[in-house]
Design a protein around this nucleic acid. Structure first.
Lengths: 349, 349
DNA sequence: CTGTGAATTTATAACGATATAAATCAGGTT
DNA sequence: AACCTGATTTATATCGTTATAAATTCACAG
């Protein structure tokens, strides 16, 4: 008669008690709903006594604010979205990132939504969609390009985000990046230091910002010592393992093959190792390898090879923290983080 | 004066146009908001002409329903939550699961929220929290136990869920499981068939349902042929790789060591391989290994070993579809899926 | 006793959608 | 022409919260 309805909700068993709302607390304390809201929301100009009473009652009845209502009223979603890339097929890059992110969001009001970026669709699609529908308060993504369209779009709309990797746009924005220059420089030096004479490197795809950092590090080290070198042709870190394997395999059958490889990822490193093994050679001894690793996998792979560690879980954590700061309005210049590599070289016998 | 406010929202640039709502469409078409809502919602008793007009206008202005408002009014969240386990350190189990889930949710109204289950906290915590705050319409989780507390709780509250793995509770409920009996049976037969005489197996932790399936498959195969066997003592699939490695290493130095290993996961398989290599033996030749794999990793590991494939992406996809069906109220008996293993045995030379 | 201003509290109106019930319209009967 | 019936459309109330503005309380000066 009064139009009351249960909103079509599914009753959750017989012990289902009416969910406590601000109104419940208001009735119990004899205060107005507004007052309760402000008391819990930390608004000024609420008598200390009142605030404490409200907080006590809220605690007692296990009140938790209704996210949907808050979101509808305030426009804040309390959600941050990770745009998941269709790459990273085999290993746990995303898992580590997610682990770090959830850790950073622990005990905050924020939830993590994971949304895929489907192959073939423009990279800006998920970002557009999220902004247009206000589906999140902030966005996290990886595989940043020097003039990344997503970054441009987000900057234009003044929408909070943190990306994994830098850009070359003039505008400062938050990011977490790994020092890929140091990685490839140190990796290359290591190979040179162990007497390798012709170095090859499997590069990231050209379009990513870190392509240049990796190249620069490699070239610097190579030039300093004058050894000969090549960039693995026709394949990159996004190539299928089979393609990388084939390329390396073929190259090893040609004149003047590389005797040292720098690999920017675990899959490529395994592919290179497999190709070397399949030629009857011993990876790490006959042909040197230094790989970037992002997990504990290479502790278990035999023979052991030199690796340089990029801590993705930490990156996720940093990105989470930076994003929260960005949402809170902190200066982006303070939210630019560069992770240092950790060298794990096998003891030389 | 009329109390209108912008809800504290951040303006998104100068091109920020008022976000289209039902009201916008109502004004453009001259219909009532209610009619528009019902036309778009597929309600019956709407004139075909009206419906088409509304849909056309909605399309034109790019209307998308406000999730928060729908959620507040209907109590449906359009969210499904994946409870992420703190295990699965190295490899991409969760990534694959998430990939499958997002694929299943593609073009549905549902979003995927990932929430961690922090170590040390009771496994029921995340489930309780989600149900209590109606934070999702359905839940997905893995590592199911025979008398799983989460399953009990969810069944009690009649809350939609799908778990990875079965239970031994009498009540039927949706699940996606892998045929671990076949896995270990076939793995064991393979070792026996290649002449191994003393088999060892690294078991899942006792508390999981699939412990029993794995054990049963192993024991069946072993009994049929009468070879001797052992269960790796003191370690299981959740042990650190280092511990597994140490155990195997030690065992190989004792009298009557195993000459064949069944490994239920990629990490344990690598650990076993590493231990064998470190003893100067050749994995796969001197000591047989059959491992369950959940990624393409073992295509790249040398020497190649026999594997049996569990398709986790497919499992995620199945779980997503089953969960949507469960939310729609389908009979749980129709939502019990058993995945078949795929044998990838290395060609014998 | 009254007026003043600061400190608190409260009433009201939204946010955008949908469930319910009531109202309108068309077409055919009698 | 008045009446009924079924097909459509619409008005109203509500989900739980918060922004705004108005109202109340209280201590104290005049």
């Amino acid at each position: 008669m009064d139009g009351t309805d249960r909103g079509g909700r599914r009753e959750t068993g017989d012990d289902a008690v009416a969910k406590p709302t601000l109104r419940t607390i208001a009735e119990l304390t004899g205060l107005a709903v507004t007052t309760v809201s402000r008391a819990l929301g930390g608004a000024p100009q609420i008598a200390l006594e009142t605030r404490q009473k409200v907080q006590r009652v809220a605690e007692e009845i296990g009140y938790l604010p209704d996210r949907a209502a808050q979101r509808l009223r305030t426009g804040r979603t309390n959600v941050i979205t990770l745009v998941l890339d269709p790459h990273e097929e085999i290993l746990g890059f995303s898992t580590s990132l997610i682990r770090g992110l959830t850790e950073a969001l622990r005990n905050t009001a924020y939830h993590l939504v994971v949304t895929p970026h489907f192959a073939n669709a423009p990279s800006t699609d998920p970002v557009r969609h999220i902004m247009r529908n206000r589906m999140a308060d902030g966005i996290v993504f990886s595989r940043t390009e020097p003039f990344d369209e997503r970054v441009k779009l987000l900057l234009e709309h003044d929408f909070p985000f943190v990306c994994h990797g830098r850009t070359e746009l003039g505008t400062p924005h938050p990011y977490v990046d790994f020092d890929n220059y140091s990685f490839s420089y140190e990796a290359t030096k290591r190979l040179i230091g162990s007497g390798r004479k012709r170095l090859a490197i499997i590069m990231p795809p050209r379009r990513f910002t870190f392509f240049q950092h990796v190249q620069y590090g490699f070239m610097s080290a190579v030039r300093e010592s004058g050894v000969s070198f090549e960039l693995a042709e026709g394949v990159d870190l996004d190539s299928s393992a089979a393609d990388i394997q084939a390329q390396v395999f073929q190259r090893l059958g040609e004149p003047n093959p590389p005797d040292g490889y720098v690999c920017g990822g675990e899959v490529s490193a395994l592919a290179v190792m497999a190709a070397i093994s399949d030629r009857g050679l011993n990876p790490g001894r006959d042909i040197g390898i230094v790989a970037k690793r992002t997990s504990g996998l290479f502790n278990l792979v035999r023979p052991q090879i030199d690796t340089i560690y990029e801590d993705i879980t930490d990156a996720g954590w940093q990105m989470g923290r930076a994003l929260l700061a960005a949402i809170a309005g902190r200066d982006p210049n303070e939210l630019q983080i560069l992770q240092k590599p950790e060298l794990n070289f096998v003891a030389t016998t």
